[in-house]
């Protein structure tokens, strides 16, 4: 997981409004909102960062230990990349 690249699904409509991302999934038109940390991960998921690199950034930017950062990021990514949601896409890094 940590070495995979993270990409936002291009079909998702989204905006960040005062540190909170609002997403509309094209598949089922459901609305999702992300909190500040989730929003930061979403913004970083632009295809230039691996999950591991994002864990590092979250660890640096927020007051959490590395282990918690990793567990939280992996859980979040797994959830949003799940078959049902498909909001984030994981791909092999080059």
């Amino acid at each position: 997981m940590l070495e995979k690249m993270l990409n936002r699904n291009k079909d998702v409509a989204w905006r960040v409004i005062e540190n909170e991302a609002i997403l509309i999934s094209a598949e089922d038109s459901m609305l999702h909102s992300l909190d500040e940390v989730g929003t930061r991960i979403w913004e970083l998921a632009d295809g230039s960062n691996t999950v591991g690199a994002i864990v590092e950034k979250i660890f640096e930017e927020y007051e959490v230990d590395r282990e918690t950062a990793e567990t939280d990021v992996v859980e979040f990514v797994t959830n949003l990349a799940s078959e049902k949601l498909g909001l984030l896409l994981l791909s092999q890094s080059e």
């Binding site: 609002i22 609305l31 940390v37 991960i41």
Partner: peptide, 11 residues
């Protein structure tokens, strides 16, 4: 980090 799904657009 993610709210439960919310009915379309309301929130």
């Amino acid at each position: 980090m993610q709210d439960q799904l919310i009915p379309l657009l309301y929130r």
